[in-house]
Design a protein around this nucleic acid. Structure first.
Lengths: 208, 208
DNA sequence: TTCTGTGAAGCGATTCACAGCT
DNA sequence: AGCTGTGAATCGCTTCACAGAA
Protein backbone atom coordinates (compact mmCIF):
# COMPACT_ATOMS: atom_id res chain seq x y z
CA UNK A 1 0.00 0.00 0.00
CA UNK A 2 1.14 3.53 -0.65
CA UNK A 3 0.17 7.17 -0.26
CA UNK A 4 -3.38 7.71 0.90
CA UNK A 5 -3.36 5.81 3.91
CA UNK A 6 -5.45 4.43 6.71
CA UNK A 7 -3.83 2.73 9.67
CA UNK A 8 -5.30 1.67 13.01
CA UNK A 9 -4.59 4.08 15.84
CA UNK A 10 -2.56 1.50 17.80
CA UNK A 11 -0.33 1.21 14.76
CA UNK A 12 0.12 4.97 14.61
CA UNK A 13 1.09 5.02 18.26
CA UNK A 14 3.69 2.33 17.67
CA UNK A 15 5.03 4.18 14.64
CA UNK A 16 5.88 7.00 17.03
CA UNK A 17 7.88 4.52 19.07
CA UNK A 18 9.74 3.25 16.01
CA UNK A 19 10.42 6.83 15.04
CA UNK A 20 12.18 7.40 18.32
CA UNK A 21 14.02 4.07 18.22
CA UNK A 22 15.26 4.88 14.72
CA UNK A 23 16.62 8.20 15.88
CA UNK A 24 18.77 6.44 18.48
CA UNK A 25 19.86 3.82 15.98
CA UNK A 26 20.70 6.45 13.42
CA UNK A 27 22.82 8.33 15.96
CA UNK A 28 24.80 5.15 16.45
CA UNK A 29 25.55 5.13 12.75
CA UNK A 30 23.68 1.89 12.07
CA UNK A 31 22.49 1.72 8.46
CA UNK A 32 20.14 -1.28 8.45
CA UNK A 33 17.95 -2.70 11.17
CA UNK A 34 15.63 -5.67 11.16
CA UNK A 35 12.37 -6.26 12.91
CA UNK A 36 13.78 -8.34 15.73
CA UNK A 37 16.39 -5.74 16.57
CA UNK A 38 13.57 -3.24 16.79
CA UNK A 39 11.78 -5.62 19.12
CA UNK A 40 14.87 -5.74 21.34
CA UNK A 41 14.88 -1.98 21.61
CA UNK A 42 11.25 -1.26 22.31
CA UNK A 43 9.56 -4.50 23.29
CA UNK A 44 7.15 -4.58 20.35
CA UNK A 45 7.13 -8.02 18.75
CA UNK A 46 8.96 -8.45 15.47
CA UNK A 47 5.87 -9.64 13.65
CA UNK A 48 3.95 -6.66 14.94
CA UNK A 49 6.70 -4.39 13.71
CA UNK A 50 6.59 -5.94 10.24
CA UNK A 51 2.82 -5.75 10.09
CA UNK A 52 2.85 -2.12 11.13
CA UNK A 53 5.52 -1.18 8.64
CA UNK A 54 3.86 -3.15 5.87
CA UNK A 55 0.93 -0.73 6.10
CA UNK A 56 2.80 1.66 3.89
CA UNK A 57 4.30 -0.37 1.12
CA UNK A 58 7.47 -2.33 0.88
CA UNK A 59 10.27 -0.57 2.65
CA UNK A 60 12.37 -3.49 3.89
CA UNK A 61 14.78 -5.69 2.02
CA UNK A 62 14.28 -9.40 2.66
CA UNK A 63 17.43 -10.92 4.08
CA UNK A 64 18.68 -7.51 5.20
CA UNK A 65 16.11 -5.45 7.02
CA UNK A 66 15.09 -1.82 6.87
CA UNK A 67 17.27 1.06 5.84
CA UNK A 68 17.26 3.22 8.96
CA UNK A 69 17.25 6.68 7.41
CA UNK A 70 14.73 5.83 4.74
CA UNK A 71 12.37 4.11 7.18
CA UNK A 72 12.53 7.01 9.57
CA UNK A 73 11.71 9.47 6.81
CA UNK A 74 8.81 7.24 5.77
CA UNK A 75 7.37 7.18 9.26
CA UNK A 76 7.92 10.91 9.60
CA UNK A 77 5.78 11.47 6.54
CA UNK A 78 3.01 9.18 7.74
CA UNK A 79 2.87 10.82 11.17
CA UNK A 80 3.30 14.27 9.59
CA UNK A 81 6.38 14.80 11.69
CA UNK A 82 8.25 15.91 8.58
CA UNK A 83 7.13 19.46 9.32
CA UNK A 84 6.83 21.72 12.34
CA UNK A 85 3.60 21.01 14.18
CA UNK A 86 2.42 24.02 16.11
CA UNK A 87 0.48 23.45 19.32
CA UNK A 88 -1.22 25.69 21.83
CA UNK A 89 -1.45 24.93 25.50
CA UNK A 90 -4.53 25.94 27.44
CA UNK A 91 -3.88 25.97 31.15
CA UNK A 92 -0.59 27.38 32.42
CA UNK A 93 -0.45 25.36 35.62
CA UNK A 94 2.38 23.06 36.50
CA UNK A 95 1.43 20.47 33.93
CA UNK A 96 1.09 23.05 31.18
CA UNK A 97 4.48 24.41 32.13
CA UNK A 98 6.00 20.94 32.18
CA UNK A 99 4.71 20.24 28.69
CA UNK A 100 5.78 23.63 27.37
CA UNK A 101 9.30 22.86 28.50
CA UNK A 102 9.35 19.18 27.56
CA UNK A 103 12.31 18.61 25.23
CA UNK A 104 10.75 15.46 23.80
CA UNK A 105 8.19 17.55 21.96
CA UNK A 106 10.77 19.72 20.27
CA UNK A 107 12.61 16.59 19.15
CA UNK A 108 9.51 15.47 17.29
CA UNK A 109 9.10 18.86 15.69
CA UNK A 110 6.33 20.14 17.93
CA UNK A 111 6.51 23.83 18.68
CA UNK A 112 4.49 25.56 21.37
CA UNK A 113 2.93 28.52 19.60
CA UNK A 114 0.94 29.92 22.49
CA UNK A 115 -0.05 29.41 26.10
CA UNK A 116 -3.38 30.55 27.50
CA UNK A 117 -4.87 30.76 30.95
CA UNK A 118 -7.88 32.48 32.43
CA UNK A 119 -6.24 33.30 35.75
CA UNK A 120 -5.32 36.98 35.83
CA UNK A 121 -2.46 36.18 38.22
CA UNK A 122 -0.83 34.00 35.59
CA UNK A 123 -1.58 35.98 32.45
CA UNK A 124 1.48 37.93 31.41
CA UNK A 125 3.98 35.57 33.03
CA UNK A 126 6.69 34.18 30.82
CA UNK A 127 6.79 30.39 30.39
CA UNK A 128 9.64 28.89 28.42
CA UNK A 129 9.93 31.87 26.15
CA UNK A 130 6.24 32.65 25.74
CA UNK A 131 3.99 35.09 27.52
CA UNK A 132 0.83 33.55 28.93
CA UNK A 133 -2.20 35.06 27.21
CA UNK A 134 -5.68 35.50 28.56
CA UNK A 135 -8.03 32.74 27.45
CA UNK A 136 -10.48 35.43 26.45
CA UNK A 137 -8.12 36.45 23.67
CA UNK A 138 -8.07 33.00 22.11
CA UNK A 139 -10.74 33.78 19.58
CA UNK A 140 -8.69 36.70 18.32
CA UNK A 141 -5.24 35.14 18.55
CA UNK A 142 -5.67 31.50 17.59
CA UNK A 143 -6.05 31.98 13.84
CA UNK A 144 -2.74 33.83 13.73
CA UNK A 145 -0.94 31.14 15.70
CA UNK A 146 -1.67 28.58 13.02
CA UNK A 147 -1.74 25.70 15.46
CA UNK A 148 -3.51 22.47 14.52
CA UNK A 149 -3.28 20.86 17.95
CA UNK A 150 -4.46 22.12 21.33
CA UNK A 151 -3.48 20.69 24.68
CA UNK A 152 -5.87 21.12 27.57
CA UNK A 153 -4.13 21.21 30.93
CA UNK A 154 -6.97 22.86 32.79
CA UNK A 155 -9.02 21.62 35.75
CA UNK A 156 -11.91 19.34 34.86
CA UNK A 157 -14.66 21.93 35.29
CA UNK A 158 -12.92 24.28 32.84
CA UNK A 159 -12.25 21.67 30.18
CA UNK A 160 -15.43 21.88 28.11
CA UNK A 161 -15.23 25.64 27.88
CA UNK A 162 -11.57 25.46 26.94
CA UNK A 163 -12.38 22.91 24.25
CA UNK A 164 -15.16 25.07 22.89
CA UNK A 165 -12.80 28.01 22.68
CA UNK A 166 -10.01 26.24 20.84
CA UNK A 167 -12.53 24.71 18.43
CA UNK A 168 -14.01 28.13 17.88
CA UNK A 169 -10.48 29.22 17.02
CA UNK A 170 -10.25 26.55 14.34
CA UNK A 171 -8.42 23.75 16.15
CA UNK A 172 -9.72 20.24 15.45
CA UNK A 173 -7.22 18.10 17.33
CA UNK A 174 -7.26 18.10 21.11
CA UNK A 175 -5.12 16.38 23.68
CA UNK A 176 -7.11 16.44 26.88
CA UNK A 177 -5.21 16.07 30.13
CA UNK A 178 -8.19 17.08 32.20
CA UNK A 179 -10.28 14.40 33.89
CA UNK A 180 -13.47 15.67 32.25
CA UNK A 181 -15.24 14.10 29.30
CA UNK A 182 -15.49 16.73 26.61
CA UNK A 183 -17.99 16.87 23.79
CA UNK A 184 -16.84 18.03 20.38
CA UNK A 185 -18.26 18.20 16.86
CA UNK A 186 -17.73 15.09 14.75
CA UNK A 187 -14.98 16.69 12.69
CA UNK A 188 -12.83 17.07 15.80
CA UNK A 189 -10.70 14.46 17.50
CA UNK A 190 -9.96 14.24 21.20
CA UNK A 191 -7.38 12.05 22.82
CA UNK A 192 -7.65 11.72 26.57
CA UNK A 193 -4.70 11.27 28.85
CA UNK A 194 -5.85 10.30 32.31
CA UNK A 195 -3.24 10.12 35.01
CA UNK A 196 -5.72 8.86 37.54
CA UNK A 197 -6.71 6.02 35.22
CA UNK A 198 -3.10 4.97 34.91
CA UNK A 199 -2.62 5.08 38.66
CA UNK A 200 -5.87 3.28 39.34
CA UNK A 201 -5.02 0.40 37.02
CA UNK A 202 -1.74 -0.06 38.82
CA UNK A 203 -3.41 0.23 42.20
CA UNK A 204 -5.68 -2.67 41.28
CA UNK A 205 -2.62 -4.87 40.95
CA UNK A 206 -1.20 -3.88 44.33
CA UNK A 207 -1.62 -6.98 46.39
CA UNK A 208 -2.85 -7.18 50.00
CA UNK B 1 -18.83 -13.07 39.63
CA UNK B 2 -17.47 -12.06 43.01
CA UNK B 3 -14.29 -11.71 45.00
CA UNK B 4 -11.19 -13.04 43.31
CA UNK B 5 -11.33 -11.27 40.22
CA UNK B 6 -9.87 -10.96 36.80
CA UNK B 7 -10.90 -8.12 34.52
CA UNK B 8 -9.36 -6.89 31.28
CA UNK B 9 -7.16 -3.84 31.68
CA UNK B 10 -9.43 -1.67 29.49
CA UNK B 11 -12.24 -2.49 31.90
CA UNK B 12 -10.11 -1.46 34.88
CA UNK B 13 -9.31 1.84 33.19
CA UNK B 14 -12.99 2.50 32.60
CA UNK B 15 -13.81 1.59 36.20
CA UNK B 16 -11.59 4.51 37.19
CA UNK B 17 -13.75 6.73 35.02
CA UNK B 18 -16.97 5.45 36.57
CA UNK B 19 -15.42 5.98 39.99
CA UNK B 20 -14.95 9.63 39.18
CA UNK B 21 -18.36 10.00 37.56
CA UNK B 22 -19.96 8.48 40.63
CA UNK B 23 -18.23 10.95 42.88
CA UNK B 24 -19.80 13.82 40.96
CA UNK B 25 -23.18 12.12 40.92
CA UNK B 26 -22.98 11.42 44.61
CA UNK B 27 -22.15 15.06 45.34
CA UNK B 28 -25.34 16.00 43.53
CA UNK B 29 -27.26 13.79 45.93
CA UNK B 30 -28.42 11.36 43.26
CA UNK B 31 -29.16 7.94 44.76
CA UNK B 32 -29.61 5.72 41.69
CA UNK B 33 -28.05 5.94 38.26
CA UNK B 34 -28.50 3.73 35.22
CA UNK B 35 -26.08 2.75 32.53
CA UNK B 36 -27.28 5.23 29.96
CA UNK B 37 -26.98 8.14 32.36
CA UNK B 38 -23.40 7.03 32.94
CA UNK B 39 -22.92 7.01 29.19
CA UNK B 40 -24.17 10.59 29.04
CA UNK B 41 -21.61 11.67 31.58
CA UNK B 42 -18.49 9.97 30.28
CA UNK B 43 -19.15 8.85 26.73
CA UNK B 44 -18.75 5.14 27.44
CA UNK B 45 -21.59 3.18 25.87
CA UNK B 46 -24.33 1.90 28.15
CA UNK B 47 -23.78 -1.71 27.14
CA UNK B 48 -20.08 -1.34 27.79
CA UNK B 49 -20.87 0.07 31.21
CA UNK B 50 -23.13 -2.86 32.04
CA UNK B 51 -20.60 -5.39 30.79
CA UNK B 52 -17.85 -3.78 32.85
CA UNK B 53 -19.93 -3.65 35.99
CA UNK B 54 -21.19 -7.18 35.52
CA UNK B 55 -17.61 -8.37 35.98
CA UNK B 56 -18.12 -8.21 39.69
CA UNK B 57 -21.47 -9.71 40.41
CA UNK B 58 -24.91 -8.26 40.39
CA UNK B 59 -24.91 -4.74 41.71
CA UNK B 60 -27.71 -3.15 39.72
CA UNK B 61 -31.45 -3.42 40.12
CA UNK B 62 -33.27 -4.14 36.85
CA UNK B 63 -35.78 -1.39 36.16
CA UNK B 64 -33.98 1.01 38.47
CA UNK B 65 -30.23 1.11 37.94
CA UNK B 66 -27.26 1.16 40.25
CA UNK B 67 -27.18 2.49 43.77
CA UNK B 68 -24.58 5.22 43.53
CA UNK B 69 -22.89 4.89 46.90
CA UNK B 70 -22.84 1.12 46.84
CA UNK B 71 -21.49 0.95 43.29
CA UNK B 72 -18.77 3.44 44.06
CA UNK B 73 -17.69 1.45 47.10
CA UNK B 74 -17.66 -1.69 44.97
CA UNK B 75 -15.42 -0.11 42.35
CA UNK B 76 -13.21 1.33 45.05
CA UNK B 77 -12.63 -2.14 46.39
CA UNK B 78 -11.86 -3.62 42.99
CA UNK B 79 -9.38 -0.86 42.14
CA UNK B 80 -8.01 -0.95 45.70
CA UNK B 81 -8.86 2.69 46.07
CA UNK B 82 -10.55 1.93 49.38
CA UNK B 83 -7.20 2.53 51.07
CA UNK B 84 -4.36 5.03 50.86
CA UNK B 85 -2.01 4.08 48.03
CA UNK B 86 1.46 5.39 48.64
CA UNK B 87 3.58 6.29 45.63
CA UNK B 88 7.11 7.50 45.14
CA UNK B 89 8.18 9.83 42.39
CA UNK B 90 11.60 9.44 40.81
CA UNK B 91 12.61 12.56 38.94
CA UNK B 92 11.90 15.94 40.50
CA UNK B 93 11.71 17.88 37.24
CA UNK B 94 8.70 19.86 36.19
CA UNK B 95 6.63 16.79 35.43
CA UNK B 96 7.50 15.17 38.73
CA UNK B 97 6.54 18.38 40.50
CA UNK B 98 3.31 18.63 38.55
CA UNK B 99 2.35 15.10 39.56
CA UNK B 100 3.37 15.62 43.16
CA UNK B 101 1.00 18.57 43.32
CA UNK B 102 -1.81 17.10 41.24
CA UNK B 103 -5.01 17.23 43.32
CA UNK B 104 -6.60 14.45 41.25
CA UNK B 105 -4.27 11.93 42.84
CA UNK B 106 -5.18 12.87 46.37
CA UNK B 107 -8.86 12.57 45.48
CA UNK B 108 -8.31 8.95 44.54
CA UNK B 109 -6.42 8.29 47.74
CA UNK B 110 -2.93 8.38 46.30
CA UNK B 111 -0.33 9.88 48.59
CA UNK B 112 3.14 10.88 47.52
CA UNK B 113 5.42 9.26 50.07
CA UNK B 114 8.75 10.36 48.64
CA UNK B 115 10.45 12.20 45.80
CA UNK B 116 13.90 11.28 44.54
CA UNK B 117 16.34 12.84 42.13
CA UNK B 118 19.98 12.33 41.35
CA UNK B 119 20.73 15.99 40.67
CA UNK B 120 22.57 17.48 43.62
CA UNK B 121 21.11 20.88 42.78
CA UNK B 122 17.61 19.57 43.36
CA UNK B 123 18.19 17.26 46.31
CA UNK B 124 17.09 18.96 49.49
CA UNK B 125 14.55 21.22 47.83
CA UNK B 126 11.01 21.09 49.16
CA UNK B 127 8.30 19.99 46.70
CA UNK B 128 4.70 20.09 47.85
CA UNK B 129 5.60 19.32 51.42
CA UNK B 130 8.35 16.78 50.79
CA UNK B 131 12.09 17.15 50.65
CA UNK B 132 13.68 15.75 47.50
CA UNK B 133 15.96 12.86 48.41
CA UNK B 134 19.04 11.67 46.60
CA UNK B 135 18.33 8.70 44.35
CA UNK B 136 21.30 6.96 45.93
CA UNK B 137 19.37 6.75 49.17
CA UNK B 138 16.49 4.88 47.60
CA UNK B 139 17.74 1.47 48.60
CA UNK B 140 17.85 2.56 52.22
CA UNK B 141 14.68 4.64 52.29
CA UNK B 142 12.20 2.84 50.05
CA UNK B 143 11.32 0.00 52.43
CA UNK B 144 10.34 2.50 55.09
CA UNK B 145 8.17 4.50 52.72
CA UNK B 146 5.93 1.50 52.14
CA UNK B 147 5.02 2.57 48.61
CA UNK B 148 3.68 0.02 46.16
CA UNK B 149 3.80 2.27 43.11
CA UNK B 150 6.69 4.22 41.60
CA UNK B 151 6.40 6.96 39.03
CA UNK B 152 9.35 7.57 36.75
CA UNK B 153 9.59 11.16 35.56
CA UNK B 154 13.23 11.01 34.57
CA UNK B 155 14.88 11.52 31.18
CA UNK B 156 14.93 8.47 28.91
CA UNK B 157 18.57 7.57 29.49
CA UNK B 158 18.03 7.46 33.26
CA UNK B 159 14.87 5.38 33.17
CA UNK B 160 16.27 1.87 33.27
CA UNK B 161 18.51 2.69 36.19
CA UNK B 162 15.66 4.36 38.03
CA UNK B 163 13.47 1.31 37.42
CA UNK B 164 16.19 -1.01 38.70
CA UNK B 165 16.49 1.05 41.85
CA UNK B 166 12.81 1.15 42.71
CA UNK B 167 12.52 -2.58 42.03
CA UNK B 168 15.51 -3.18 44.23
CA UNK B 169 13.61 -1.23 46.87
CA UNK B 170 10.66 -3.62 46.59
CA UNK B 171 8.33 -1.76 44.24
CA UNK B 172 6.61 -3.90 41.63
CA UNK B 173 4.30 -1.38 39.95
CA UNK B 174 5.80 1.32 37.75
CA UNK B 175 4.26 4.19 35.87
CA UNK B 176 6.83 5.20 33.29
CA UNK B 177 6.61 8.71 31.89
CA UNK B 178 10.00 8.48 30.26
CA UNK B 179 10.25 7.72 26.57
CA UNK B 180 12.52 4.75 27.20
CA UNK B 181 11.50 1.11 27.09
CA UNK B 182 12.36 -0.43 30.43
CA UNK B 183 12.97 -4.07 31.19
CA UNK B 184 11.68 -5.50 34.43
CA UNK B 185 11.36 -8.93 36.05
CA UNK B 186 8.19 -10.79 35.22
CA UNK B 187 6.64 -10.14 38.62
CA UNK B 188 6.69 -6.40 37.93
CA UNK B 189 4.25 -4.36 35.89
CA UNK B 190 5.04 -1.26 33.88
CA UNK B 191 2.56 1.14 32.37
CA UNK B 192 3.96 3.56 29.86
CA UNK B 193 2.62 7.05 29.37
CA UNK B 194 4.07 8.56 26.24
CA UNK B 195 3.28 12.19 25.55
CA UNK B 196 5.07 12.09 22.23
CA UNK B 197 2.96 9.13 21.14
CA UNK B 198 -0.19 11.05 21.94
CA UNK B 199 1.00 14.09 20.06
CA UNK B 200 2.21 12.05 17.11
CA UNK B 201 -1.12 10.28 16.70
CA UNK B 202 -2.86 13.64 16.59
CA UNK B 203 -0.27 15.04 14.20
CA UNK B 204 -1.05 12.22 11.77
CA UNK B 205 -4.61 13.51 11.56
CA UNK B 206 -3.58 17.10 10.89
CA UNK B 207 -4.55 17.62 7.30
CA UNK B 208 -2.48 19.37 4.60
C1' DT C 1 -42.60 -1.14 31.69
C1' DT C 2 -37.77 -0.26 32.59
C1' DC C 3 -33.33 -1.63 32.92
C1' DT C 4 -29.91 -5.18 34.19
C1' DG C 5 -26.96 -9.22 33.13
C1' DT C 6 -25.27 -12.06 29.63
C1' DG C 7 -24.73 -15.37 25.76
C1' DA C 8 -23.78 -14.78 21.03
C1' DA C 9 -22.30 -12.21 17.21
C1' DG C 10 -19.25 -9.00 15.38
C1' DC C 11 -15.10 -6.52 14.86
C1' DG C 12 -10.38 -5.32 15.02
C1' DA C 13 -5.93 -6.15 16.30
C1' DT C 14 -2.16 -9.48 17.17
C1' DT C 15 0.29 -13.60 16.26
C1' DC C 16 1.46 -17.34 13.38
C1' DA C 17 3.62 -19.47 9.64
C1' DC C 18 5.44 -19.54 5.32
C1' DA C 19 6.04 -18.20 0.35
C1' DG C 20 9.14 -15.46 -1.94
C1' DC C 21 12.74 -12.02 -2.50
C1' DT C 22 17.90 -10.85 -1.92
C1' DA D 1 20.52 -18.57 4.68
C1' DG D 2 18.11 -14.58 6.34
C1' DC D 3 14.38 -11.65 6.68
C1' DT D 4 10.35 -9.36 4.76
C1' DG D 5 5.42 -9.14 3.55
C1' DT D 6 1.14 -11.22 4.15
C1' DG D 7 -2.85 -14.39 4.23
C1' DA D 8 -4.86 -17.22 7.77
C1' DA D 9 -5.68 -18.30 12.42
C1' DT D 10 -6.31 -16.57 16.78
C1' DC D 11 -7.33 -13.74 20.44
C1' DG D 12 -9.77 -10.37 23.11
C1' DC D 13 -12.74 -6.64 23.45
C1' DT D 14 -17.09 -4.37 22.13
C1' DT D 15 -21.71 -4.36 20.58
C1' DC D 16 -25.98 -6.54 20.00
C1' DA D 17 -30.20 -8.32 21.43
C1' DC D 18 -33.08 -10.32 24.57
C1' DA D 19 -34.57 -13.19 28.67
C1' DG D 20 -35.71 -12.18 33.08
C1' DA D 21 -35.78 -9.40 37.50
C1' DA D 22 -38.04 -5.39 39.86
Amino acid sequence: MQGNFKAPVPTLARLATYFSVLRDVQKQGIVFINSSKIEDRCGISASQVRKDLSHFGEVGKPGVGYEVVRLRRHIGRVLKLDRTQRVVIVGAGRLGQALAAYPGLAEYGFEVAGIFDNDALVVGNPISGLVVRDSASMHALLPGLNAKIAVLTVPGPAAQQAADMVIDGGVRLILNFSPAHIKVPRNCMVRDVSFTQEFAVLAHYSED
